[in-house]
Design a protein around this nucleic acid. Structure first.
Lengths: 161, 161
DNA sequence: CGCATTCGGTTCAAGCTTGAACCTCGGAAG
DNA sequence: CTTCCGAGGTTCAAGCTTGAACCGAATGCG
């Protein structure tokens, strides 16, 4: 249906290629640090850290999934592994027993506390410390905007079923 | 070794979380469009597109790997699949027969040409069209900077062996 | 000359992600 | 009442990525 598509101009192309390069490399770099030092992937860390900041160190699974931008399927698999390592438990939500929640254990909390400094240092090294304050603000705005566009598209295509 | 780590302030944290969210969602959204419409992953597309823009539609494997920010191992696996689909060939480099090159076939070229409009439209929809020209420039600078930091860290750790 | 290292690339096993299929439970609609 | 549907989760097979081990060909370097 696109008769003559609108190609990217030079500036847009460079921005997109740079972003693509970032997307391909940054996750690997952060994964590598966490795996080496704490035997966690970046995704594992986000899950545990998300729980650690929630009231009662607890979240409903679907809330957790949306917080870490993942499918329920992926989250379920990861939770199984983390539960086997004793870092969290799954249990029915006492308020509404048809929901499940994930609860961070003491061991899970300790691991987040132990992993956080190294992880934050890596985020600084790779991302934050190379940028000016204006660039950090711009990054936040751009990334929020893009995330929002992606979410809207996802909702649209759900509606379009 | 980190006595009291430098945590992220509110602004830095927001920027980092937004970027993380982007990194988790954007690749999936672009993959989904290409898979649905052209049976290619984003990574496949970058490989084919990289070849299509190279002189002679040909690149040495290691040059291609660095262009698409991937390990040689990953590239080798992907090339095997793309070669089986007849989209490219591998052959020794005539200039220096100990190197191998990947050469885009006619079918590969046709597929890139067919896939490009839809892919560009998705990049516009998810990324470019939501941003002002200043934001696009800022994005390029930020993403370049981050990529560079990651590359430097990778080189450092290679040196540090 | 010979030894070791590096570079370019491939392969393999282990682990991770994805999407589809499935299950259960609680409404809403007929 | 019962039938249907959707939301919350889980599971499974298929496919992808990763890192380590490996190979052959050059290129030091002693």
């Amino acid at each position: 249906m696109p008769e003559e598509p609108r190609w990217l101009d030079e500036c847009e192309r460079e921005a997109w290629l740079a972003l693509a390069s970032l997307m391909f490399k940054l996750p690997g770099a952060l994964d590598a640090q966490l795996l080496r030092d704490n035997d966690l992937t970046l995704f594992d860390y986000f899950v545990l850290s998300g729980l650690s900041m929630a009231p009662g160190r607890t979240l409903r699974l679907s809330a957790l999934a949306s917080q870490v931008s993942s499918s329920l399927s992926r989250l379920s698999n990861v939770l199984k592994r983390l539960e086997q390592r004793g870092l969290l438990r799954r249990e029915p939500d006492p308020d509404n027993p048809r929901y499940n929640r994930a609860v961070l254990t003491e061991a899970g909390w300790d691991l987040v506390v132990a992993a956080a400094p190294g992880h934050v240092a890596a985020v600084r090294r790779f991302v934050i410390d190379g940028l000016t304050p204006e660039q950090i603000t711009a990054l936040r705005e751009v990334a929020c905007r893009v995330t929002q566009q992606v979410n809207e598209a996802a909702e649209d295509s759900r509606r379009g079923c």
